[in-house]
């Protein structure tokens, strides 16, 4: 259960918390694209990723996300690290910059650098998404998503219904987690062992958890639907909004800053410009 709380919203009064969720979502997507753009050399990639990383750290610091929590979620990446390293070391490379030679098995520099580039991308993705999720209420995020989906209404996509579904799902996560805990306790008291045993027994134990969970969730959804209907909810009717999003002047400035960073990255990527070579005449990998 604890792992689910990693990206949880933490209330603070920072400028990032006050930023319009639409601007934040936009900034996240744009920065992610900037991270994934192809750059001419590894050193250029690392430089740009480094700049975005510093920016991310600044955001983390300003939005009061505890660095301990960030490290904890990054620690979950270790399986990926091993996986990526193995893949890239085994894949034969075209360039010839050997780093080590272990009894005739050559590991090339670009394997290591490529693995490092992918890893940095993952780390950056996690850091930036954590800034978003811990500084934005799930409900505001849903509202932002609904706003972006709004144009799809023209082709008949029910964006308001999707937004309602998402916000109900978010609302019921803690309730259903409580159910999980209760059912696990109930089944444990009847002799189901969720912790020990080999794979077969474990699967059986999980089934004894999942089926009651489904049953209770269906009962819940049925009652919820009744309650919503009685309170006058009609998915196709017009509704007013309690929470309105306000795009302020500050949001424009902040979006502009992010766009400026993105524009710089995009230019470097499209021109395939190796700044180190152009300015100092150094050729790098």
């Amino acid at each position: 259960m604890a792992s689910l709380t990693i990206g949880r919203y933490v209330p603070y009064n920072s400028f990032i918390h006050k930023m319009d969720p639409r601007a934040k979502l936009f900034a996240l997507i744009v920065l992610m694209v900037a991270i994934f753009l192809p750059y001419p050399t590894y050193v250029m990639s690392f430089t740009i990723q480094g700049i975005i990383f510093l920016f991310g750290v600044f955001l983390l610091w300003r939005s009061h996300v505890s660095f301990f929590r960030v490290l904890k979620s990054l620690a979950a990446l270790w399986i990926m690290v091993i996986f990526i390293l193995i893949i890239y070391v085994l894949v034969p490379r075209t360039t010839n910059y050997p780093a080590f030679d272990i009894n005739g098995f050559v590991i090339y520099w670009d394997s290591i650098l490529e693995a490092a580039r992918i890893l940095l991308r993952l780390v950056l993705m996690i850091v930036l998404s954590m800034v978003l999720t811990s500084s934005t209420k799930p409900l505001d995020l849903t509202a932002a998503l609904e706003w972006y989906l709004y144009p799809l209404k023209l082709i008949g996509f029910p964006s308001h219904i999707v937004a309602m579904i998402i916000s109900l799902a978010l609302r019921f996560i803690p309730t259903i987690l409580d159910d999980v805990e209760r059912i696990m306790k109930a089944q444990s008291s009847r002799g189901v062992d969720f912790e020990n045993g080999h794979l077969g027994t474990k699967i059986k134990a999980i089934v004894s958890l999942i089926i009651p969970l489904f049953v209770s969730s269906f009962i819940r959804s049925d009652e919820l639907a009744n309650a919503m209907e009685c309170r006058g909810y009609d998915p196709n009717a017009k509704r007013t909004r309690y929470r309105k999003l306000h795009f302020r002047a500050v949001d424009f400035v902040e979006t502009f800053v992010v766009l400026a960073i993105f524009a710089g990255c995009l230019t470097l990527s499209i021109m395939q410009l190796d700044a180190y070579n152009a300015i100092w005449g150094i050729t790098t990998l």
Binding site: E223, R231, Y233, D234, T240, Y242, K244
Partner: peptide
């Protein structure tokens, strides 16, 4: 009590019915 709580906070839950009635925000 859980299955009729629609909003993610007390405020939002009371607002749910008002939104359905198209009360101005």
């Amino acid at each position: 009590p859980d299955n009729q709580f629609v909003g993610s906070s007390v405020r939002d839950d009371i607002a749910f019915g008002l939104e359905n009635r198209q009360v101005p925000s």
